[in-house]
Design a protein around this nucleic acid. Sequence first.
DNA 1: TATGAATGAGCGTTCATTCAT
DNA 2: GATGAATGAACGCTCATTCAT
Lengths: 221, 221, 221, 221
Amino acid sequence: MARSRLHPDPFTEPRWRRRKDARPSEILDAALGVFVEKGFAAARIEDIAQRAGVTKGTVYLYFPSKQAVFEALIRQAILPRFEAIEAIADAYDGPIAPLFQRLIQEVGQRVAGELAVFPKLIISEAGNFPEIARFYRFEVIARGEALFSRLYAKGVATGELPDIDPRIVTKLTVAPLLLSAIWKTTFSAFDEEALDVAALIQTHAQVLARGLAALAREARP
Amino acid sequence: MARSRLHPDPFTEPRWRRRKDARPSEILDAALGVFVEKGFAAARIEDIAQRAGVTKGTVYLYFPSKQAVFEALIRQAILPRFEAIEAIADAYDGPIAPLFQRLIQEVGQRVAGELAVFPKLIISEAGNFPEIARFYRFEVIARGEALFSRLYAKGVATGELPDIDPRIVTKLTVAPLLLSAIWKTTFSAFDEEALDVAALIQTHAQVLARGLAALAREARP
Amino acid sequence: MARSRLHPDPFTEPRWRRRKDARPSEILDAALGVFVEKGFAAARIEDIAQRAGVTKGTVYLYFPSKQAVFEALIRQAILPRFEAIEAIADAYDGPIAPLFQRLIQEVGQRVAGELAVFPKLIISEAGNFPEIARFYRFEVIARGEALFSRLYAKGVATGELPDIDPRIVTKLTVAPLLLSAIWKTTFSAFDEEALDVAALIQTHAQVLARGLAALAREARP
Amino acid sequence: MARSRLHPDPFTEPRWRRRKDARPSEILDAALGVFVEKGFAAARIEDIAQRAGVTKGTVYLYFPSKQAVFEALIRQAILPRFEAIEAIADAYDGPIAPLFQRLIQEVGQRVAGELAVFPKLIISEAGNFPEIARFYRFEVIARGEALFSRLYAKGVATGELPDIDPRIVTKLTVAPLLLSAIWKTTFSAFDEEALDVAALIQTHAQVLARGLAALAREARP
DNA sequence: TATGAATGAGCGTTCATTCAT
DNA sequence: GATGAATGAACGCTCATTCAT
């Protein structure tokens, strides 16, 4: 059986290995956990270091400041996943309604899952990090809205969807996903029975689809 | 002999004496502002004191610690406003749909207005103040869900509304309000044109009503 | 007999007295000692605080940073004494030679005495504090040169003194005083027999006077 | 089989191999620059290494600590140059006055030139490095004083020079050179017009010679 | 009741030093 | 011999909290 990395033998294990390439992301992983648990201000670099299995000084080998760790974390975590969603949407060609359903499920699963902590972080720290708020506002939200608006416009053109300000529809679409993410990071510890996110999202998708369709129908002569 | 404190002359008594009793809530008002702007950790007692027009020491006359200020703030701010909503709902007797519309508008206005800062605070600090998260979870959210469920059940009984888990419907109903609140505290600084919360909420109410009604209809034979 | 301040009774002595007015100069006094002994970089705020009989935090009540302590120290210590010299010189009216003698003695005593540490500080830290070097260069040296040049010009006019660039004569006049100051702060610890500064300065005054007089005489036809 | 290190081919051997022996003095050269610019405490080993074209670890191959670098620097830099002066003086045989003139010029040029940084370093760091202060006091200054005293005594014997404590005359002689050195390292950055060191030294030599001669004359019956 | 001077624990950051490679 | 990743002690600075006035 292979020796577990979890229990290195202190006698044969070298004090460190040349792992420059792996360090930054190890540190960011650790930082994510600490920032989520405590928020930026209450997070101690020493906590992050410890969780990454290094000492304080090592963190500063790779990031010039605590704030830089935070910013790197946000950038690195959000953008790649975002691109995955864009790829799906842009590759699609067909009626709009099913794509909406699929995107809501797809994004919802992520936002209420691995990505759930980011809304919390952004909301918590936007005040202290306008730079991050701006980044998120324009690089993530605006981009998401633009993507959504492109698709939505197709549905409006075919009469499937009502002609409503797409920024509003985007927000209505996203709101339950955001709520799910917040619930998970903030209140799920107190739930006897875990929130059934999948059901919530599915119901959301159904209600939203029917509601929009009804409005579209009403608008027709 | 000095004038007795027991019979203050209302004409010579300086105005500020009345403020003695008001001090705690003045401090909490000031604290709200500071906590919202900076978050709990970055808020300095001195900032709060200054904004309340007193000195640091005075804050400690009324609250034993910074954390106590925060907790008092959350408790006193939410519950009274909450009761106002409950009064409206419980006094109501009639078809459910219009009440929903009205409640969404009513709550929405507040949540996206004066109360907008509380979700931000709760979300930000829940990790560091489990006690506050628990309080909010059970004293505010659970109570709101219960109120909503009572009303919703009436609508299900009359066939107006589909028989869906009311906890999910509550969340779907509240989600856009929450998003509006978060938007205002987190991103509105970057908006060229302010988010039209009223339009968002009205659209939400329309879509939700039609979506639920459609589901209710589908469920009928 | 009055209670000595040097041995306060720990049981009756309050933790602190309201001595806001005295604190800054107490701290600067302490800082002077520490900066002189260790230089700016090696001086610890905690050392300064301890020597002033307070704690670290108290230093920061009165000065926003270590650098600010240093700058205040330099400004506060140099300028008042400088003005005393100017007063003597400007009040004087008579032949130049005796005034020179007197000024050299007067300034020499101070520079090799209570002020001896300042040249050392300025020289040591000028590189790291251009602001202080500039201040000293223009507020102290330039002013001293101007004072000296005014007097010197009178002697040139009467033929007592040779017509040499006054900036050079100033430096020649000051140089042994500077050397005395540096000797005291840098090497006197190793002297078996202390440097006789008074003799050095007196000899300097004599040699300089005769040397300048000789040059003046040579320049006359 | 790998080529033996014992018989390196002079044609293929890369040039840089020769530098192995030069490393320590390359490091000291680099260290001189950094120490002068920043002072001992603010100088970083990494700066020194970088300026020497090596990495931090390499510095520690040749010197056991930062302090050792500093001490080696001071020792190796002063003594060799000092010996050059001694050689000139001891080889001289003739009237004293012209030799003084020449020595003042000679030493002055160096002290205000390449060696100007050393007084600054010694003065700055004497407090933190008593060992260096002592070394400089006894190996450099005392030796210089002895040399000067030997020459001076000859002048006293011939009646050219007055019978003054030679330690004092030495200091009077050196003081303007010291001042020039300090000026260059400390204030020249603020000069619009550079200090004319040559003129200063020449004037110094003239004034000093005439002043001493006058005193010698006065002492004669 | 109110003040604000003083405290001291705590954290971000730096950098001399070590040592596996 | 040379590297540079890692360490950890040290120090500047902040700020919640205390308490003499």
